[in-house]
Design a protein around this nucleic acid. Structure first.
Lengths: 342, 342
DNA sequence: ATTATGTGGGACATAAATTGTCCCGGCAAG
DNA sequence: CTTGCCGGGACAATTTATGTCCCACATAAT
């Protein structure tokens, strides 16, 4: 059973924000015993008018009294703060964690959904929904969106809905086909996303594991070259993060290469590159599409990955330092946090 | 410990309304398996535009899917409905009860606060706050407000705060002084309310238990006569409801009279009148001020009373049939409900 | 094949609320 | 007394919510 709070949040997403805001104000008033509006503005970071409306509300609720000297908490208010404390704590557990991880890796935003994708398909679905929501929020008109493959990205595609914010966007696969389950290929996912949002898509029909020769000759194909140009002009990349060895096996990489990966301690894979635990790119899957230098200058790089088992891989990719937004779940976030504060 | 929900409601009063609205829509969609917007408007009673915004929201949340055929619930939505059901039930326990009692006695509105005023001073305080909120909502400019005495009304006065809706109002005691604790007299409460709202007040300095002679001569005093005229022009009456015998004793009524009250089965007292369980006025406290015929044609009569022990008295007064709004608590409401559906 | 009915969604004027800003009179402390 | 902070009134600007109408499309009955 999920926590009541999480259920409520699904029907009222800014519940957390509102409760937190009002609790913080009330708490601050309690600590200061008596405090003026201007000082409260300082310590809460709210604008004056907003703070004022909130104080008026708290007054209506009989939680504070306002007198000439300032604002004072009432017994009922004090009681509420005490009763609210554990609720706020559990309520904000994830928000705090988001902020911690965001700061630790210098990201623009971190979104954590409750649960563990490893054990609950619902959580994985939620992860997809959250990823879709992030995409919906950051996308601008005419943006090219490059998407990677994988089951998590498939969930993101599933979570997308048509929305007026998607206007004249183009969905493209970030790199060549991944030779795995067709449903999880970047091509399929790009087309699914385009279909759901009412946008256009282009497909990159290039196999994985290109030989040097094949790579060169393919790169020179005019139609492929043109599409790769489009892909490199992407404003947004959204990708999953995989366990390197698992991915390599799934792609039928030679056992010798896999052994090498293991020996080198490579844990993570994302958009066709393998990352060492220190965040260095140690190897890549030879194919066409987005290159590392493209990633580094793309406006918004969104990583979506959850589940306790992915925590180390996520850290590896985050250390690489070119992610902007991370969407993950509670289980992974907990473990990431433990790595940060051992 | 109060329920989490009740605590949250104090910081976000329309939590119930929003959750209920969205749950109802989702529930309806689930029941209909697929349903159009217009039909949903019918069955929910919302306006089309509002319903549409809500559906868009539910879609964003991934709880419903909308297709050409209509709106359909998703697995996540179905899961949410199931998990939400017990929450909604406890959430709406009081709202449903409010509606039941409202209908049973043909009232304009019923407000129930959680708890039992008999055992918890906090609940009594909440009752006062709720009463104050109701008063604040129904009052219009220039209205004369007649208030009765009693500890509950004292809480209402305490719950009042200055607010722009109080403009040029006049607070007056409903009837002559009650010869009890001065803090609980109608005079004190009227003046307290006026002070808190920044309005005027007038006091009626008339003792209780007037002899016939004294009553007649007092009634003819010009200044008293004039004030009584004002009192009778009140647009709003707000009063508590008391246990008849307890009230009589507190007022030092002769033990013979008390015995009579008991013999007659009189349970309730309100604004100076005693009520039989059938809702008939069987006796009154001889003093000046509002008379029964005044009550019957006053715009808004607000009764505020809580605690399990008051349930029978509340029923008696409600049966009298001239109340408009009842503010009570969970304990009293439960017992009232039991009387109604034995 | 052709209506008729119901669907979702676009568009837009209007109403309502939130918010940013300024200022005023009061009151307490210096 | 004066100075500084207090709450709160006022109001314009802005955002959000709402009411209304209409359209293209799908389905089902005719």
């Amino acid at each position: 059973m999920r926590r009541i709070i999480d259920i409520q949040k699904q029907l009222l997403p800014d519940l957390t924000y509102i409760l937190d805001k009002r609790y913080k104000i009330l708490h601050q008033i309690m600590l200061s015993s008596i405090i003026g509006r201007r000082s409260l503005v300082q310590s809460t970071g709210l604008t004056e008018r907003v703070l004022r409306s909130e104080v008026e509300f708290l007054k209506e609720q009989g939680l504070v009294e306002v007198e000439a000297m300032g604002i004072r908490i009432t017994p009922a208010g004090r009681r509420l703060v005490e009763e609210m404390e554990p609720i706020i704590k559990s309520l904000l557990g994830l928000s705090e964690m988001e902020e911690l991880i965001r700061k630790a890796f210098n990201l623009k935003q971190v979104v954590i959904v409750p649960g563990d994708s490893d054990t609950s398909p619902f959580t994985k679905q939620e992860l997809g929904r959250a990823g879709a929501a992030v995409l919906r929020r950051v996308v601008n008109r005419d943006d090219v969106v490059a998407v990677a493959g994988g089951s998590t990205l498939a969930e993101v595609a599933d979570g997308l809905t048509s929305s007026p914010v998607f206007k004249d966007n183009l969905f493209v696969p970030a790199r060549g086909g991944l030779g795995e389950d067709v449903e999880l290929q970047a091509n399929s996912i790009a087309s699914e996303m385009a279909k759901r949002t009412g946008c256009q898509y282009r497909l990159l029909h290039v196999p994985d594991h290109l030989s040097e020769d094949a790579y060169v000759s393919l790169s020179q194909e005019p139609n492929i070259q043109e599409l790769v140009e489009v892909i490199r002009s992407a404003k947004i990349v959204i990708h999953g993060i995989g366990n390197a060895v698992v991915m390599a096996k799934r792609r039928g990489v030679s056992s010798r290469t896999i052994a090498e990966l293991q020996r080198e301690g490579v844990l993570a894979e994302a958009f066709g590159y393998y990352f060492s635990p220190e965040g260095k790119v140690v190897r890549n899957i030879p194919t066409v599409g987005l290159r590392l230098e493209d990633i580094e200058q793309i406006d918004t790089v969104i990583g979506v990955a959850g589940g306790q088992s992915k925590a180390q891989a996520i850290i590896s990719v985050l250390r690489y330092g070119h992610e902007d937004i991370l969407v993950t779940d509670e289980a992974a976030a907990d473990k990431i946090y433990q790595f940060l504060n051992p």
